[in-house]
C-alpha cells in the first residue's frame, strides 16, 4: 500500500476514533437534522422543500469548517508536523488528506440525510440527482479548502474556534440554509453573497430542484470553484510546519484573498 493510502486510512479512522471528530462529523449534523425534521417542518412546512440541501450543506460546513481545523492546529502545536517533515511527509499530504477524509465523512452524512429526509420528514428529494451530487462535491471541496486555510492561519486552538465560527455562524443565519435568500432584508442580502453556503444553496435550488433563484448560477458555480482552488493554493503556500518557527512564506492576512471571488460576486448579481 502506498504512503498516501496509509495516510488516508489513518486519517479516515481518526474521524471515527476521535470523539470530538465523531461528534462533529456525524452526531452533531445528524442530531440537528433530526431536530429540524421534527420541529422545523412542523412550524414551517415550506422547509420540506429545502430541507435536504440545507442539511447537506450544514453537515459539510460542520465537518470541514468547524471540525477539521482544530486537530490540524493541535497537531502542529504538539510538534507532530515536525516529525512528519523529518520523515518526508509532504505538506500537501498533511493538508489534503484530512481534507479528503473529512469530505468523505461529510458525504456519508449527506447521503444519510438525502436518503432519510424524504422517508421520515417529507423532505423533497432532488429532481436532478446528477446535479445534486456534483454540487455536493463542489461544496465539500470548497468548504474543505476553507477549513484547511483556517487551520493554516490560526495561531493557536482558540484562534481556530474564532475563525471557524466567523464562517459558520453567518452561514447559518444569512447563508440560505434556515431561510431563503429572497426573504432576507435588502440590507443584508448583499452580504449573503460573501458566504459559500449561499452560492451552494442557490446551485442546489436552481440546478438540483429546478426552482427559481436570485443568484446567477454559472457565476455561483465559478465562485465556489475559484474560491476553493484559491483557498487550497493559499493553504499550501502559507503552511507552517512548526508553531515555534514563525518563518513562513507569506503573511496570514493573505488568506483573505480566498474571499476575493465572493466579494466580486456581490457586484455581479
Amino acid at each position: 500500500m502506498t504512503a498516501f493510502m496509509h495516510h488516508f486510512a489513518y486519517e479516515f479512522k481518526t474521524g471515527l476514533r476521535n470523539p470530538s471528530l465523531l461528534m462533529i462529523n456525524y452526531l452533531f449534523p445528524l442530531g440537528f437534522f433530526a431536530m429540524m425534521g421534527f420541529v422545523m417542518t412542523a412550524i414551517n412546512p415550506l422547509f420540506q422543500a429545502s430541507m435536504v440541501p440545507a442539511m447537506v450543506i450544514f453537515a459539510i460546513v460542520a465537518a470541514t469548517v468547524l471540525g477539521m481545523p482544530g486537530p490540524l492546529v493541535e497537531a502542529r502545536e504538539a510538534g507532530i508536523f515536525r516529525s512528519y517533515k523529518i520523515n518526508g511527509v509532504p505538506a500537501l499530504s498533511i493538508l489534503a488528506i484530512p481534507g479528503l477524509t473529512t469530505g468523505f465523512h461529510a458525504l456519508i452524512t449527506a447521503a444519510i440525510i438525502t436518503l432519510t429526509a424524504p422517508l421520515f420528514f417529507g423532505g423533497h428529494a432532488p429532481v436532478n440527482v446528477g446535479a445534486f451530487v456534483g454540487i455536493t462535491l463542489l461544496t465539500a471541496f470548497t468548504c474543505a479548502a476553507l477549513g484547511m486555510l483556517i487551520s493554516v492561519i490560526s495561531a493557536n486552538s482558540r484562534a481556530t474556534i474564532l475563525w471557524s465560527q466567523l464562517v459558520f455562524l453567518p452561514s447559518m443565519l444569512i447563508g440560505g440554509l434556515m431561510m431563503p435568500l429572497d426573504v432576507l432584508p435588502e440590507a443584508v442580502r448583499p452580504f449573503s453573497a460573501l458566504l459559500p453556503t449561499s452560492h451552494a444553496m442557490q446551485l442546489f435550488t436552481g440546478w438540483a430542484y429546478n426552482e427559481p433563484t436570485v443568484f446567477n448560477l454559472p457565476v455561483s458555480a465559478l465562485i465556489l470553484a475559484l474560491s476553493g482552488m484559491l483557498a487550497f493554493a493559499l493553504s499550501i503556500y502559507l503552511f507552517n510546519w512548526d508553531t515555534h518557527n514563525q518563518i513562513r512564506r507569506g503573511h496570514p492576512l493573505m488568506a483573505l484573498l480566498a474571499l476575493a471571488p465572493y466579494v466580486v460576486s456581490m457586484f455581479l448579481k
Binding site: 489513518y10 481518526t14 476514533r17 476521535n18 504538539a78 510538534g79 507532530i80 515536525r82 516529525s83 523529518i86
Partner: peptide
C-alpha cells in the same frame, strides 16, 4: 524527537 511527534490516536 523530545516531544511525542505522533498523533494521539495512531
Amino acid at each position: 524527537l523530545q516531544s511525542s511527534g505522533l498523533p494521539a490516536t495512531m
